[in-house]
Amino acid sequence: MRSDLDYLVPSSVEEAVALRAASAGAAYLLGGTDLLPQMRAGRKAPGQLIDLKRIPPLREIRETADGGLSIGAAVVMADVEVHPAVLGRFPLLAECIRTVGAWPLRQRATLGGNVCNASPAADAAVALLALDAAFHVVSAEGRRSIPAGSFFRGPGQTALLPGELLTDLVLPGGAAGFRGRYLRLSRRKGMDLATVGVLVGKSSGTAPDRWRIGLAAVAPTPLRVAAAEERLEAKGAAAAEEAAALAVAACRPISDLRGSAEYRRDMVGVLVRRGVVELG
């Protein structure tokens, strides 16, 4: 960590964006559960930390006009996973968040920070992809919305431009009602990254049923497998085997200390099949 590090606490989004625009070497700070270890390891060396946690609108969960939900970037995961609207309408998000780190970590780690860190193993990101979330960002140039599907570009790489600030993550009302399972393999239940994560979601509110298949830790970014979803929507749960094969074809795993690429690929097939059969 730089010895001349400075710490700034803006009280509004506009102030934060102005501070960031004024200093090229600054970084936004949310929970810091990724950023601070990266700084200690020397992998990142910002000159200033702009702490966003004291900006009130970033700490809110709000209902949106279309029946969706806007989750402020600075809301900690522990608050998202127990929020009644999340549990009632978007339980897939809570299902994924509950597997991140451990309870004390989730008291600190934010949903916004999790997506900006863009880990290929980001459990919460899989749910946001599956639920067609939109990420609202702001910079000195103005505001824009980035669909979750085009936000993740690679390990640690996102579609954010330098200086852009993620204000909130918006779940559309149309994505309400999906239920399902996040099947996650790791060496230890708490405090370990996923070796493989598979989200299987289903919504029975319409005919035919809608399906969602998301994958973590088996590609450079969290993935959604549209081909598998379409197959399930056309043929129902009877197509579990085909959906599993399509997910296996879509993943691009690497071998690392958590597992080999071959193991990961096999497990994607097993877990997709298992999830689809379970949801029937």
Binding site: Y7, G32, T33, W103, P104
Partner: peptide, 16 residues
């Protein structure tokens, strides 16, 4: 404990 909830002191800057 920060405001009564368990948190990691290594991931919290003193200024925060």
């Amino acid at each position: 404990l920060i405001d009564g909830a368990a948190r990691y002191a290594c991931l919290t800057l003193a200024v925060e």
